[in-house]
Every structure is written in structure tokens, then in C-alpha cells.
Computed example of a mutant assay.
Amino acid sequence: MRLLIDGYNLLHKSDLMGTGHGAAWLERARQRLIDTIAAYLEPQDLPQTTIVFDRHSGKQIDAHQVDSSGIQILYAVDHPEADDLIEDLIAKSSHPKQLTVVSSDHRLQKAIDRRGGKSVDADIWYERLLAGQVTTGAKKNKQGRGNRQAKRGKSHKPDSPLTDEQLARWLDRFNADAIQDELSSLAEEPSPIPKPRPPALPQPKAKPAKKATKQKTQPKPPKKPAPPRSKKKQPATKPDDLSKRKLQQENYNPFPEGYTDDLWDE
């Protein structure tokens, strides 16, 4: 034994208690706790785990039981309450330094501290369990497969079909009455037949948009080059013209011919 659990203390710190009353309801809550611990622990840790509950009121029950998973279940039949039985187990442990007590009860925490073991508050241990961070330090057996599927968040597929007892446990854990009512309502109400959808009309194909064509511009004709100008200056008049003009000026007579003849006659 390496893991000693205060059963009802852990049950009240978890989310497995549920609501109800009576011996049957309490028995189902206990079984939910056992199943959850068995689902999240490593296979080699299960035989090293012991859960202690208060004694039963009502029907006779064995003080020592072994769950189908291998977990040891003890009931405080010969003790006033579970804390007394757990304290007695701590005192009689042959390897107390390897023992871990899961309980928020200060009385039990001091008892294991005196013997050099470890103690963990119930709520903290439960969070670690769901996170896959709990181990007893036991060696893996040859058939062990490491962490279970439930620890990794995946459903575990059993190798063989569930027994009627196991099926009843899981149905109770997941609110079997609500599931059964839902299944019955689905079986009674026929599913409506979906109406066929009218065939889709063919959509006209859109004409491709015409590409804008660029207008080709006519190339402008090249300009004719201007004729080169002569650097030599041309004379305004030729020499022959100058001599003619001088002669004309010398012989120029502003009076018409015969204008002065009248004067000579007087």
C-alpha cells in the first residue's frame, strides 16, 4: 500500500457527490469515486491504492473488499469512523515514508507527518488526478501500457463487453433516467421526411467582358528640314544698276519739254 485515501473526505471535495439522499444514493456516489480513480490511475498503481470509508448503516457489508480494478476498499466496521481506521493503518505501516495520505483532515496529516510520509489535501489531489499527475511510484508491470486512455482525454475501449453491473454503474453516473427518456422520445417520434428540393435552374453564362482596345495613333510625318542659309551676303544692287541710276539723275529735268519757250518769246 502506497496511497491511502480518506474516501468521504475526497468525495465531498470532488464533483462526484451529486444530489440525493438515502443509502442507495450514497452507494452510487462511492462507486463513482472508485470508478474515477480507477480510470485515471496507472494500472500498476491500482493494487497500491486503498480507499477507506465510514462503516455502513443498514445492511451487512464486508470490512475489506477488492474492486474489479484492483483497488482495496476498506470500511471502518470495527472503528468509530474512517479517520480512526486510517490513523491505525498509518501506525502499522511497515514503509511509512513511501505512504501518501489523501485527506484534508489535519489529524491525519499530522499522523503521517510524524512517521515521515506525505499528505495531500483532497481537493488538490483530485485536480492532479484529473490532470494525470498522480503516481504511487510503483514499477510498471510487463503488461502495463502506461497512461490510460481516460487520462489523455480519450475514451477507453474495453477489451470485452461490459457486464450488467458495470453498465448499470456507468448509466447511473451519466444520469441514466435522462438518457433513457431521451431515447424513448426519439423512438416514439418519427423523424420528419425532408422535402425534396426543386432542381436548380441553369444559370445563363455571363458573357466575357470585351477587352478595351487601344486606338493606334497615326505617326506624324517628319518635318522637312529648312534649306540651309548662305553665309555670304548678296549685294543689294548690281554695279550696272548704280551707273544707270546716276545717269538718270544727271539728266533729270523736272520741267516738261517746252515749258520755258514762252519766256524766251517775251
Rank of each mutant, 00 (worst) to 15 (best):
H56A: 12
K92S: 13
H95Q: 12
S191G: 07
V52Y: 04
G7N: 08
D84M: 06
K140N: 12
P80N: 13
V77K: 05
A200T: 14
I86H: 00
K238E: 11
P196Q: 11
V66D: 06
K154T: 13
I61Q: 07
I112N: 14
H21Y: 08
D265P: 00
K220A: 06
R128W: 06
Q203K: 09
P204T: 06
Q180T: 15
A176T: 10
S160L: 05
Q215L: 11
L162V: 03
G20N: 00
V120Q: 15
L130C: 05
D62P: 00
Y252Q: 08
P221N: 01
G153H: 12
P202F: 03
A236E: 10
P221A: 11
G146Y: 04
Q44R: 07
K223S: 11
G7Y: 01
S230G: 06
L171N: 09
S14T: 00
A209V: 11
H156D: 13
K231M: 08
A38L: 00
P47K: 02
Q143P: 03
A176M: 03
R197G: 03
N253C: 06
R173N: 10
A82S: 07
A122E: 04
Q149D: 12
R2T: 04
D265H: 01
P256A: 15
D54K: 00
K233Y: 09
S119C: 04
V52P: 01
G18A: 14
P219D: 07
M1V: 13
E27I: 03
F53G: 04
E188G: 14
P161N: 05
I179N: 01
D164W: 14
S103F: 05
P256H: 11
I37H: 04
K232P: 02
Y75C: 03
G22Y: 02
Y259G: 07
V102W: 02
K59W: 04
L11W: 03
I90P: 06
S191I: 06
D240V: 08
P208A: 13
L85G: 11
N175V: 03
R152T: 13
S184M: 10
P256V: 05
V101S: 10
P222C: 00
P208Y: 06
S185C: 04
S14E: 00
R32Y: 03
A212Y: 02
